[in-house]
């Protein structure tokens, strides 16, 4: 049981991990991330990598939508920009992996700024539609700028290699994808300890008040767009190395909705929300497979009959979260923490 946390400096107050148990758990968590690939088979490693990529993308969207209050349905298009940039650089320039990835992030960020321009004038649903429009324009470009994007068939990406070591297996890819995700999440968490992050939150809560407080709206909104797009671009770049082929159909509008659903289910405006949401949205349908597997001996022709059930249950779970915990998984996690803070002396 923790009775209180004494903080003796502003530095301590701002720290990401404020208590000893937090630090211990974080250390255990990081150790577990390191140990994970040795314990998992290819299927779970694949999912772990996919979760990591989705966590990066969802965290980016969370910065934009959850923290700055700007709704975007174009996030998948920014991922696509990152993925194409990486695929193009890898196949045409042959530049090293890390440069490609950063380039993917930066090019996506540039597009983000462009797409974010209307955000000064339009908000809410209108902005959502504007970002959808932008994603359709980008989709058009992906199909028609053959010389760069490979047209409808897209670009096949050679396996990622670092210092001549080919990273083609999920086991090896994990060691690239997971650390980058960890750094990206750490970056996002730190962002909200700075003036910039606080400005984002002020804009979300009431943009006019924020402007009165001396926050230049255009600059900060565009900054939020560019940071979010950078995250999306990085995630897209990792995606390109992970799936090894990028086509115009790789990042449909549904991906944007998936990410938006992830941060809503996870909890908007909390870093942990983006993480939990991405994990939930990626793993829940897969875990439901096992549920279906357990019931399937009881049902004749189980494959055909139970497959739709899985989709329905997944949908119901999302609706359930929205009804019973509108604050998302992040709030449930907080509640569990509060419980254990007083454990074993429950109030």
């Amino acid at each position: 049981m923790i009775i209180g946390t004494a903080k003796e400096s502003y530095r301590a107050d701002e720290a990401l991990l404020t208590t000893q148990p937090q630090r211990v758990w974080m250390a255990i968590f990081l150790a577990a991330l390191v140990a994970l690939p040795f314990a998992l088979n290819d299927y779970w490693l694949y999912l772990a990598c996919l979760v990591a990529i989705n966590v990066t993308a969802a965290t980016g969207l969370n910065i934009l939508t959850g923290f700055t209050g700007l709704v975007s349905l174009g996030h998948a298009a920014f991922m696509a920009v990152g993925a194409y940039t990486v695929a193009w650089a890898e196949t045409r320039l042959g530049t090293p992996f890390f440069i490609n990835l950063i380039a993917g992030g930066l090019v996506a960020a540039a597009f983000g700024i462009l797409v974010g321009l209307p955000s000064l004038r339009v908000k809410g649903l209108y902005l959502a539609i504007a970002t959808i429009a932008a994603s359709f324009i980008l989709h058009f470009c992906f199909i028609h700028f053959d010389g760069i994007t490979g047209g409808a068939t897209g670009i096949n990406v050679p396996p990622l290699s670092i210092f001549g070591i080919e990273l083609a297996t999920y086991f090896r890819l994990y060691w690239v994808i997971m650390p980058i995700t960890a750094v990206m999440v750490l970056g996002a968490a730190n962002l909200f300890r700075t003036r910039i992050g606080r400005a984002f939150i002020a804009i979300r809560d009431r943009d006019i008040s924020a402007e009165v407080l001396g926050i230049p709206l255009l600059r900060y909104k565009l900054m939020s767009f560019s940071i979010a797009s950078f995250y999306a671009g990085m995630a897209g770049g990792l995606w390109a190395y992970f799936f090894r082929v990028v086509t115009p159909e790789s990042f449909p509008l549904l991906t944007s909705i998936f990410l938006l659903a992830a941060i809503i289910v996870g909890g908007m405006g909390a870093i942990i929300g983006g993480i939990a949401g991405a994990i939930f949205m990626t793993l829940a349908p897969e875990l439901l497979r096992f549920g279906m597997e357990w019931i399937s001996p009881l049902v004749p022709n189980a494959g055909a009959l139970l497959s739709p059930v899985r989709t329905v249950v997944f949908g119901a779970l999302i609706v359930g979260f929205l009804i019973f915990e509108p604050q998302g998984l992040a709030e449930i996690i907080q509640r569990i923490r509060r419980y254990f803070r007083l454990w074993p002396f429950r109030t």
Partner: peptide, 23 residues
Amino acid sequence: MKTTRRMAMGLLAGAASLGLSMG
């Protein structure tokens, strides 16, 4: 933050053992 990570870990680890045993 700690509990979430723990939950996520638990989920992953549980899932992992499940996958391995089923295989």
